[in-house]
């Protein structure tokens, strides 16, 4: 497995675990309130800080395991895979935004609009790493 594929697996795992943790907190807060919880900034900040720290740790560990590969630029196949994955993940973000925009006029729930937007951002990032892995494995 190449360094970039290992990195993609690590980032996908970090983002998935972080996203599940965050939305579990939002769900619990919404249940307690009996309505959609507003954006909980301490959790948003904690999520971002945890993602950044976990990413730095993961990349450092992977980089130390194979420093030459870590320092090498992406080759032509990897660049092509990254580009395709980025293109397609944009559709995930776009779909989420459209869902949020359709949901808002029907329910007038600004909190839900925020959560849908945040979830779309997370899902598009997870999709991007997943698609990178797919393209790395299928030859791009």
């Amino acid at each position: 497995m190449s360094f970039r594929e290992q990195s993609a697996w690590a980032m996908m795992a970090i983002l998935t675990v972080g996203g599940l943790w965050y939305f579990n907190k939002v769900r619990a807060a919404s249940v307690a309130l009996g309505e959609t919880a507003p954006p909980i900034m301490p959790f948003v900040i904690a999520y971002i800080v945890l993602i950044v720290i976990a990413s730095i740790v993961a990349m450092s560990v992977l980089g130390m395991a194979s420093p030459e590969a870590a320092n090498a630029p992406a080759d032509e196949r990897e660049r092509q895979a990254d580009s395709r994955a980025g293109d397609l993940s944009g559709y995930v973000l776009g779909a989420g935004v459209i869902i949020g925009l359709l949901h808002y006029p029907l329910h007038m729930d600004g909190n839900m609009l925020y959560h849908i937007g945040f979830a779309s951002l997370m899902l598009s990032q997870i999709a991007e790493y997943g698609l990178r892995i797919w393209y790395y494995r299928t030859g791009s």
Binding site: S2, A69, D75, G139
Partner: peptide, 22 residues
């Protein structure tokens, strides 16, 4: 040729067509 080993594997398996330069 300036690519990763995984790219050479993909080329050999016919999964990836290299650029003209490669």
């Amino acid at each position: 040729i300036g690519v990763t080993r995984q790219t050479v594997i993909a080329i050999e398996r016919g999964k990836y067509s290299p650029s003209l330069e490669s």
